[in-house]
Simulated assay, not measured.
Amino acid sequence: MQWIKETFGSYKPIIAMCHLRALPGDPYFDLGGGMDKVVELARQDLHGLQDGGVDAVMFSNEFSLPYLTKVRPETVASMARVIGELRSEIKIPFGVNVLWDPIASIDLAVATGAKFIREIMTGVYASDFGLWNTNVGETVRHKMELGAKDLKMLFNIVPEASKYLADRDIVDIAKSTVFNNRPDALCVSGLTAGAETDSGVLTRVKQAVPETAVFCNTGCRLETIERQLSIADGAVVGTTFKVDGKFDNLVDPVRVKAFMEKVKSFRGQHQKFK
């Protein structure tokens, strides 16, 4: 898993979420503030995360609630504008996640120069968004057709607000996902953004696919991150970096710095890179 070090420049990296506010076409888009406000708030969050010492940042349309499983063109265009305006200010590796559309995520990554995407790329689910299907063969072929062979693919195998349509054990899912799809990493999540990932589930997945990177995908907190990183190869962190640890708020630089100080202390005690 040398690719982790090469991509993020760190052992057990922390990928911080830069949650974009509702965009044009979204039900809760701020017509008064417009795209200028979306860009400015994203800029504020980006600098709070970078200055706090995170290893990478991932831009997502987190406030495009309720989500679509096939997004509209205006969503990708709006996200590209935000990243384009901030591009010269991004000093760390970055990725993108267009919820919940892997094809759109790849398109955005290629357009902006992102190093990785995270998405639901496999499985069929009963979800809050209706019957949720995927086509990983089409997704990976699309990536290769666009010449993005080096784009890292983080497969979320425990989608939020949904359940596998068939009754499958998480170990079986992890093993078959790795065998059939060759993901760069598997992401293990809780029920929703900010909901803690079950350490038992995280352990079972990592033990099932020891040669594949496994990231803790939701609910990482100051008091739990050492335990989670003792199992996982990295973590995706969003809500805990926000003011009062609340999803709707902006990033709190003080919380980011305190969190990353603990992470760096942990990494200092576990230097061997696997």
Rank of each mutant, 00 (worst) to 15 (best):
M1S: 14
M1H: 11
I4M: 08
I4P: 01
E6W: 00
F8L: 04
G9Y: 01
G9M: 00
S10T: 03
Y11M: 14
Y11L: 15
M17P: 02
M17D: 04
H19M: 00
H19D: 02
R21F: 12
R21H: 12
R21S: 12
D26T: 04
F29L: 00
D30G: 06
G32T: 00
G32Q: 04
G33T: 02
D36Y: 13
D36T: 13
K37W: 10
V38F: 09
V38I: 11
V39W: 08
E40A: 15
E40N: 12
L41E: 03
R43C: 03
D45E: 02
H47M: 14
H47G: 07
G48F: 01
G52K: 06
V54D: 09
M58W: 08
F59M: 02
N61P: 10
E62D: 14
F63K: 03
F63L: 03
L65R: 01
Y67L: 06
T69Y: 04
R72Y: 12
A77N: 06
S78N: 11
M79Q: 10
V82M: 07
V82Y: 05
V82C: 06
R87N: 11
S88L: 10
S88R: 13
P93M: 04
P93S: 01
G95W: 02
V96K: 00
N97R: 08
V98M: 05
L99G: 07
S105W: 00
S105G: 09
S105K: 06
A109N: 01
V110H: 07
A111R: 11
A111N: 08
K115A: 14
K115M: 12
K115Y: 08
I117A: 00
I120R: 09
T122S: 14
G123K: 09
V124I: 13
T134N: 12
N135Y: 14
N135A: 15
N135W: 14
G137M: 14
E138M: 15
T139L: 14
T139G: 13
K143F: 14
L146T: 13
G147R: 08
A148S: 12
K149Y: 15
D150V: 05
M153P: 14
N156D: 15
I157G: 03
A161H: 15
S162C: 08
Y164V: 12
L165S: 09
A166Q: 13
D167N: 12
D167F: 08
R168M: 15
D172L: 13
S176D: 13
R182V: 02
P183W: 05
P183Y: 02
D184L: 08
A185L: 12
A193W: 03
A193D: 00
D198C: 04
G200W: 10
V201L: 06
V201N: 04
R204I: 04
V205P: 05
K206T: 04
A208P: 10
A208R: 07
P210V: 11
P210N: 11
A213K: 08
C216G: 13
G219Y: 02
G219F: 06
R221S: 11
L222Q: 09
I225N: 08
Q228G: 02
L229P: 01
A232V: 01
G234M: 07
F241A: 10
F241V: 07
G245D: 05
K246R: 09
R255N: 02
R255C: 05
V256T: 04
M260D: 06
M260Y: 01
E261R: 12
K262F: 06
G268H: 01
Q269E: 03
Q269T: 05
Q269M: 00
H270F: 03
